[in-house]
Write a protein that binds this DNA or RNA. Sequence first.
DNA 1: TTTCTTGACACCTATGTGAGAACC
DNA 2: AGGGTTCTCACATAGGTGTCAAGA
Lengths: 633, 633
Amino acid sequence: MSYHPHLGAAQPSFLAALSLPDVALSERYSSSASDARRRADLRRQPQVAPPRSLTSLQLEPGPDDDPVVTLESKNLWDEFHNMGTEMVITRSGRRMFPPFKVTVDGLQESDKYIMLMDIVAVDECRYKFHNSRWKVAGKADPEMPKRMYIHPDSPSKGEQWMSKPVTFHKLKLTNNISDKHGFTVLNSMHKYQPRFHIVRANDIIKLPYSTFRTYVFPEMEFIAVTAYQNEKITQLKIDNNPFAKGFRDTGNGKREKRSKQRNPSVLHEGQSAAEQESGDSDDSGEQRSTSDSICSPLELVSSPLMSTPSCFDENNTGCDSDCDRQSEDPAEANGSWDKYAPAPSLRSEELLRNRSALSKSHDCQEATNERTVFRTSDDMYSTKRDSSIEHMGEILSSLRCGRHQTLDFSGANRQHLLKFGAPLLFHPGQLTVKPEAFPTTTTGHRFSSLSGVDELVSGELTLQSITSASPFMAHLSQHTLASQGIPLSPYGGYPYCYVAAPAALPASSATLSLSRNHCAHGSRPWLRFSPYHLPSSATSHPCPLTEFSSGSSHAQFKPDSRKPGPVCVDHSYEKAKQRTAPLQTTSKASVYEVLRGADKPRANNLTGIHLGSWDHIMSWPISDGLVKVIRAG
Amino acid sequence: MSYHPHLGAAQPSFLAALSLPDVALSERYSSSASDARRRADLRRQPQVAPPRSLTSLQLEPGPDDDPVVTLESKNLWDEFHNMGTEMVITRSGRRMFPPFKVTVDGLQESDKYIMLMDIVAVDECRYKFHNSRWKVAGKADPEMPKRMYIHPDSPSKGEQWMSKPVTFHKLKLTNNISDKHGFTVLNSMHKYQPRFHIVRANDIIKLPYSTFRTYVFPEMEFIAVTAYQNEKITQLKIDNNPFAKGFRDTGNGKREKRSKQRNPSVLHEGQSAAEQESGDSDDSGEQRSTSDSICSPLELVSSPLMSTPSCFDENNTGCDSDCDRQSEDPAEANGSWDKYAPAPSLRSEELLRNRSALSKSHDCQEATNERTVFRTSDDMYSTKRDSSIEHMGEILSSLRCGRHQTLDFSGANRQHLLKFGAPLLFHPGQLTVKPEAFPTTTTGHRFSSLSGVDELVSGELTLQSITSASPFMAHLSQHTLASQGIPLSPYGGYPYCYVAAPAALPASSATLSLSRNHCAHGSRPWLRFSPYHLPSSATSHPCPLTEFSSGSSHAQFKPDSRKPGPVCVDHSYEKAKQRTAPLQTTSKASVYEVLRGADKPRANNLTGIHLGSWDHIMSWPISDGLVKVIRAG
DNA sequence: TTTCTTGACACCTATGTGAGAACC
DNA sequence: AGGGTTCTCACATAGGTGTCAAGA
C-alpha cells in the first residue's frame, strides 16, 4: 500500500481532505466483515498538509517535497492482519515479522532526510486469547518508555532513501524493562501500532526543529506476545519466515502437529537475510507484493490516534474491570480481528470516532470552552493504579464533547502518561555536533545511564483536549549501536528526560511540564512548535529560552507582532523537586498559542511539539485530527 | 606493535629523525638470522614530520594531534610473517587472516578522521613456492588497479576511533579483475604490503585536500595465493581462524593428513566473528597481543617504499629473466622469509638501501642533476613486457645516485606503472556534497561502470626521481557498499580515471598525465599538493585549473609571488587520444615546484599529490624519504 | 487450574574456512 | 607432466526461527 499526499504546491487548504463523509462512519458499523480493514481505509485519508509556504523558519531545505510511502509486502501484512497479527517479544529481543519495510518516493533527491519508526500502544487494554479470539482482559499495564528508532542510514539524501527499500530489521522487540540494547520495550498481550516518520533534516541534532511526517499502516497493528496464541499466526510465520523453514511441513514427519494447511500466501523468502551493514537493503526490492492502489496509508503529522485509550472489543468499551464479559461464541472462531469488530452501538461508535478522530477533527466543532485539568503528583513509581484512570477512556471521549474533567494522575497511570525515558542512540558520525547552533553554553557533559531511579516532578497540564500522553512521547534510539558495543551517544551515556506534555497544543494555551535529569546548569532548553499546517501566513518561532539553572527563572517569548504568526510561548521554570537523584532539575514551561489571521480552524493544526536542550532532543508530533482542539474563549 | 611519532609541538625539523646511522645498515648484512625483522626495525623510524605550523592551508581542524597506531595481534602477525604469510585470494573475495586491526590513540577527540587502508605491491616480482621456499619466478604480472579502502565508519570523531579497535574485515581480496564488489584485486603469487592511513577530515570529499598519515607494519607483508603453498601457513591459519575450526586436529579422526603439530600460538578466536554493522568492533579489544614497545611501525606520509621494484630473493636482484637461478638448498627449508634474506653483497645492499630508502633519504645527497625520463606510448594494453622494464630495479637504485635514465614504458609495464582505476565507493551519508566548495560547474553527472576497455593515454614524465608509480595510485573504495547492493556512489556509478603520475614531486618539475573517462565537459579538475613539510613559510596553492573540456586547453597557475610559497603548477591539457571508449578525454598537467625560502632541503618534503575534479578524487602520498628528490639545476 | 513466561533446543539462513577434485 | 586456478564440499561461526517442557 502506498500513499501519496497529492499536495499541490499552492493548495490552500486540506480541510476538505480531512472531511470524511458521515456516511463512511455510519457505514463502518453497519457491516460485520472486515471492519478492521474499513477502519484502516478510513484512516488512510490524508490528515494534514505537509509544509508549504513557510515564511520564517527555513528549517526545510530546498524546494518542497512530496513523499510517497509504500509498505512492502502489503499482501503478507494483510494476511497477518486479517487473523490478528502477533509479534513475539523475548527477553533478548525479537525482530518483527513481517519486517517493517517501506519504499519511499517523492523526496527531494539532494536533501537529506532522517527516517524513523516507533511503536505506540493502540489502546489502554490488556488482551487475552480465549476461545480462538482476542478479547480485552482488563486495563493496560503500565506502559514502557517509548523509543523512537532512527534508521541507521540517517541522515541520508533523498535519492538514497528512494533507491532502495527502507527497512527496520534492526529494531527488536523485547519485554525486558531493563533492556540495555535500546530495543523497543513492549507489554505482552497489548496491542501496538508501528509508525513511520520522515523528517527532512541533514543532522539528527536538528530533529527537534524539524517536521515529522508520520505514516501509519493500520495493517501493521499487532499484539505483542511472549508465545504465539493463534496457531494460524504461527503457521503463517512458519510459512513465510525463512528462518522458520525448519518448522515447515515438508512431509518428512516434521511438524505433524500443525494440521491445517494454510494458504501458503506469497512466500517472504530472501528478504530476512543477514544484512550486515548500516544499509538495510536485503531483498533488493524484488518480488514486492506492494500495491500502489487506492490503499493509501494514513499520513499524519502524528498518529497518536493509535493510542487513544479505547478498547476495541465488541462488548467492552471503557476497559473497565468487567472486561471479560464478552460473548464467547466459539463457532468457527479464527481469531481474526474482523470477528471482534465492535457492534454498531452508540457507545462504541463514540469510541471509534474518538479513535479515528484524526480523520474527523472537524466533527467536534461544537466543543465548548470547558477545560480538562490533569494533575500529577510525585509518587509516580507506585505500581498501583489509581481509580481515576479507570475513566480514562470515558474522559477522553468526553473531551471530544468538551466536558470538563479534572484528573489526578497518580500511581502507575501517571507514570504511564508521563514517563518519558529517552535513550538517545546515535550511530557514529550521524550526529554532527555544532555547539554554536544551539542556545546553550554547556556542551558535551555526561549523562547518567538509564536507571530505575528516576524522577518525575509534578506538573500541571492545562488542556482543552488530551489523549494519552504516552504515545506522543517518543524517544530516539538506534538499536544497532548498543549491540555493537559502540558508546551510546557522543556524550557517553543515555541522555534522557521525562516530559509531561499535552498531546496536542490547544488553541490558546497549554502547559508543558518536564523533568530533566542531569541537565547541566547553564544548559538552556528550548521548545518549539512545528506549525506547518497553520495558515500560510503563520510564523513559527524557535523559542530561545532563558538560561536553565537549578534555580528558577522565567522567560517569555512573544511572537513578532508584525508577523501574523500564531505561536506564543511562555516558559517558566521551577526548581527541581528532588527525590533520590541529586541535582535533578525540573523545568516547567507554559506554552501558549495565539491565533492570528483569518484561518483559525486550521491554525490549530500544529504538527509537533519539540522540546530539547543541548543535552537531549525530544520531539513528538501532534495532530488535531486526533485530538480535538478546543479553542479557549 | 605501535608507533608514536613523538612530535614535539615546535620541533623544527625531522630530518634528524630521518637520519639512520650507517652502522645500522652495515649491521644489517652482517647477521644471518631474522633479517626481515631487522628490515622492519629499520623502517620503524619516523620518516616525515606530521603537519606542524601550517601557515596558509587551514586544512587541519583544531589543534595538532599525535596519532599512535598499534597493530592488534602482532604476535600472530609475527608468527605468520616469520614463515612467510600467504593470503588466499578467490574469485568471490576472501578476507585477510589475521584480520587487519589496529588501535589508534593520540587523535583529537572532537576532530573527525577518515581511516583508510590499501595494499600495495612490494616489488616487481612474481614468486613461486619451490622446495618449501618462496623464490622469485620472474617479473611481476601487470598490476591491478589499486583501490583505497575507506573504513565504513569514516568520517568519525577521534574519540570514536580511539574507543575501539579499527578493523578492516570488510576488505576482501580477489583475483577477479572484473570484480564489481569493490574488493581489492591482487595478483596471485605476488608480494604485497598493507598500509594504514589516517586522514584528519570531516568529509570524504575533503580527502584530496588532506594529509595522509600512512602507517606500515612490515609484519603484514604477504604473498597472495589462490591455494596455500606452505603447509605451515595452512596449519597456522587452521589453528587460529575460528572459521577453520573444522580442520583442526581434534583427535576424532579428522585432519590426520596434517602431521606436524605446530605451536598453537595465541588463538585468535572470537575476533573474526560476524560483524554486522558499520562498526567494526568485534572482539572488543580483549586479549590483544599487541606490544607497545620499541616495535614502532613506520609512519609515513607515504609508504611507496613497499613497492620499490627490487626483488628480495637471495640470488636474484633485478628480476631479470633468469630469475630462477637461485640456489635451491632444500635443507631444513621452512619457507621463512628470513631464510632468503639477501646475502651481504654490494648489489643486494644497494637494493636494500633503495628499498628502505625512506629511512635514508639523506644518504643520497650527492645526487646530481641528471634526469630520468620515462616515456609512455599508447599501446598500454599489450601484455608483453618491454625489456626496458627489466632494468627497473637497477634504474631505481641508480636513481639514488643520480644516473640518467630514459625508459620507454610500453606494454604491461606501462600499465603497471600508469594504470589507475578508481572506483569511488561511499557509504550513504558519508559523502557530503558541497558543490560550492569545488571549482566545478558540473555536478552529479553519471559515470560509466568500471569496464575492461579502458584507455590510458600516453604522457611524459619528466622526473628527477621515481619509483614504481603504481603503489602511489590509490583509489578510494568501500567494499561493503557494493556488497550491500547500494549504489556505488551518489552518482550511481564508478567514477574513475587513470593517472600517469610521478610518485614524488621533484624539486623543479614533473609532468602528470591523466586520462579521465566520462568527465563531463565543463567539469574542472583540480590539482593540489600537501606541502606540509615544507618550511613553515611555505604556501600551498590549491590549483584552480581552467575549464576542462574534450578540446584542449591550457592554464597556468603561478604561486603568489608575494608569499614564500614553493609550489608552482603548470597545467596543460591535451585532447584525448581515443581508442575504444568514446568521449574519452586526457588531461595532461605539468607540475613544477619552485623552491623558495631558505630551508630548501626540507622544501622537497611534499607529503602528497592530490588530483581530482568534481567527478573523482584521487590522492596519493609521496615521501622524499622514499624517493630521492633531486633538484634540477 | 489456568494463563503466561522462560530458556534450552533443533533447525534454519548466511557466511567464512581449507580440502580436494577437476580443470586448464 | 606439472603448476596454478576454480569449484564444490564438509565443517565452522553467528544468529534468527518456533517448539516444548518447565516454571511462575
